[in-house]
């Protein structure tokens, strides 16, 4: 929309500016410098991961590799050691998949029902709980870490994958509930009323009317949750045991382990591998990602 108006205004504006005006050189020059600065770490990661160790020891971290090798990637994926395990990051990757998939599904299912109940049914006390939830989003996680350990221990899920799924559902709830509540509130209320008149119940309306209409917001919520849960470190390290550590925790253990010779190329390959999933989601989803974080951020 903004581009359309920009084109329109351009056509109506005063005389066209010269392409190489001093203003443009300054503007694009600054932006290109900034863009290069932001790209630099990604570039360094990729370049380092494709070099052999002798080349790294001799040279410049910004120089492109003389001899490209994929050995570091193979090693990072399948052979890097954490403690006694030497099966590489692949273990952490699959753990993260096993954590992320159920966490995303459960957290979104709960939050969408919450949002729906808050937007359309407005039961007694709803606003009180919602306000608590929103304020809860600001409480530092450290305050609630131990009480949740006790809760999980009570229900026998401490240290297990499902325990972590519950934790992610709890801490994802404030922002997701807000997202869904705002979306459902924006839908025309007549729809809901008509369905009520036709005798549809709570779940009937949710599954037959609300769900089919809210695909976009589900996609936004999914992007938000997949990146958030994949990138989580704190909950992974607190609520799971070493054999189901998510990728971020395992990555940190590989790179920051004190024993052995540091293999910077393997470390960088491992770092890219861990960042790959959210990066792919980011570059593929583009605008939706921006919408997700903006929705989460502006009101959060």
């Amino acid at each position: 929309m903004t581009e359309a108006t920009a084109v329109f205004e351009g056509a109506h504006g005063p005389k066209p500016r010269r392409t190489f005006s001093r203003r443009n050189i300054f503007l694009y020059g600054t932006l290109i410098m900034v863009a290069l600065y932001y790209m630099l770490p990604l570039y360094v990661m990729i370049v380092t991961s494709l070099k052999g160790m002798p080349e790294i020891r001799l040279g410049n971290i910004f120089a492109p590799p003389v001899e490209i090798t994929f050995q570091p990637w193979v090693k990072a994926w399948a052979e890097a050691c954490t403690g006694l395990n030497c099966d590489g990051l692949s273990r952490g990757f699959w753990n993260s998949v096993r954590i992320t998939v159920p966490s995303v599904i459960v957290s979104i299912a709960i939050a969408s029902v919450n949002g729906y109940a808050l937007a359309n049914w407005r039961f007694k006390g709803a606003n009180v709980f919602f306000t608590i939830l929103i304020f809860g989003a600001f409480i530092p996680y450290q305050v609630m870490l131990y009480p949740i350990v006790i809760l999980l221990r009570e229900i026998g899920l401490y240290g297990s994958l499902w325990g972590l799924v519950i934790v992610h559902s709890i801490f994802g709830m404030p922002i997701l509930t807000l997202l869904f509540r705002n979306y459902f509130t924006s839908l025309p209320e007549e729809l809901f009323k008509a369905a009520r008149v036709d005798g549809a119940g709570f779940w009937g309306i949710y599954f037959q009317i609300m769900l089919p209409m809210s695909l976009p917001i589900f996609v936004v919520a999914m992007i938000l949750q997949v990146t958030g849960i994949w990138n989580d470190f704190l909950f992974g390290v607190v609520y799971t045991k070493p054999d189901i550590y998510p990728m971020t925790v395992q990555l940190n253990n590989i790179v920051n382990s004190v024993q052995g010779v540091k293999e910077y190329n393997v470390n960088m390959a491992a770092t890219i591998l861990t960042g790959l999933v959210p990066l792919v989601i980011y570059f593929v989803s583009g605008r939706l990602f921006v919408r997700g974080i903006a929705a989460g951020a502006v009101k959060g």
Binding site: Y38, L40, P41, L42, V44, M45, T48, I61, T227, W230, N231, D232, F233, T248, L251, N252, V255, Y264, N267, M268, T271, T274, G275, P278, L279, I281, Y282, F283, F289, V290, I293
Partner: peptide, 18 residues
């Protein structure tokens, strides 16, 4: 905006290297 998609762990490790 792309760095925002990366975790703090990844961010910390890259800058540790740079």
């Amino acid at each position: 905006l792309y760095p925002f998609a990366l975790s703090f762990i990844v961010t910390g490790l890259v800058w540790q290297w740079i």
